[in-house]
């Protein structure tokens, strides 16, 4: 039982990290219908800049804020230079964002060097608690809390604010939103920057979790994020949360009980969901 609880906490923490990465991706896809393969690059930049800011300031909070701002600025540049010219063309989006993903990864090597860099966990989030034989690692609980908080905040914005209403309306009918006097391109830009900020947040939190950051981590985790977006339903925010938790838990259990299947389990999960619900667990309009 204790073992199961430990595996569950680990799975939830991993799931929340994947959710943070997938959340941005699904928002960007849901509203803008943009397949952004550069998302992993923004995640990696978040991880590296988090480590950088932590090294410079010694404050974990400032490092996370710095990483998110880095992601937001990169998001602004990416939308303006890379995404804007290819709105409405998925093939071009895949090609150009995949290319930009490689550029972002290589730029990390130019700026931070080619080797992986160690990432430290702040003292107050290091260590663990023991409750009834269950070891609860503080940092993992912290990630779960941040993931839930981000979910709640984004849901609040989507459901309770005017900008959230505009985003939800834009998912349904962009043209009509414009015909009501709303500059949808500006909304697109904000959503893209928010999505990039979420990717960078995931990267900044992932760094202490994995202990090291490396330039290729973006591509690695972007694949997981895409699996989550497909399972959850392209463009569905609650779907992404559920799918990320499923992927995290499945990975955690499989790694312990059937290690040989731990890498394949995400693909199997995706295949099973797609067989029975090709549209994913939720649909975009339930976002």
């Amino acid at each position: 039982m204790d073992l199961l609880l430990n595996l569950t906490v680990n799975g939830l923490a991993t799931g929340m990290l994947i959710f943070l990465l997938a959340a941005g991706l699904t928002l960007i896809f849901g509203l803008m219908s943009v397949l952004n393969f550069a998302h992993g690059g923004l995640f990696a930049w978040g991880a590296f800049s988090g480590v950088f800011f932590y090294g410079v300031t010694g404050s974990f909070l400032i490092s996370v804020i710095g990483a998110v701002l880095t992601g937001v600025v990169l998001g602004f540049i990416t939308e303006k230079l890379i995404i804007k010219p290819v709105y409405g063309n998925h093939v071009q989006q895949i090609l150009i964002t995949l290319g930009f993903m490689l550029v972002l990864s290589e730029m990390l090597k130019v700026v931070f060097g080619p080797n992986q860099i160690a990432a430290k966990t702040p003292d107050y989030l290091s260590g663990s608690w023991e409750a009834g034989g269950v070891i609860l690692i503080k940092y993992r609980l912290f990630i779960i809390l941040v993931g839930l908080l981000v979910f709640a905040v984004v849901q609040f914005i989507l459901k309770r604010t005017k900008i959230g209403l505009v985003v939800r309306a834009g998912v349904i009918n962009k043209e009509m939103v414009q015909a009501l006097g709303i500059d949808i391109n500006k909304v697109f830009l904000y959503v893209f920057m928010a999505g990039a900020g979420l990717a960078a947040l995931a990267g900044a939190l992932m760094a202490p979790y994995s202990g090291v950051v490396y330039a290729e981590m973006g591509l690695e985790f972007a694949i997981l994020a895409f699996i989550v977006v497909v399972i959850g339903g392209m463009g569905s925010f609650p779907g992404s949360l559920l799918a990320a938790i499923l992927v995290g838990l499945a990975g955690s259990y499989m790694a312990y009980f059937v290690p040989s299947l731990s890498l394949a389990v995400n693909m199997i999960l995706m295949a099973v969901v797609l067989i029975f619900r090709p549209q994913g667990l939720f649909t975009a309009k339930e976002a």
Partner: peptide, 21 residues
Amino acid sequence: YVPEDQAVFTTLTVEENLKVA
């Protein structure tokens, strides 16, 4: 503008449809 297909925001309530506008 009132389009031919009405283009109502289907998952938004009546109140929200008016609020967006």
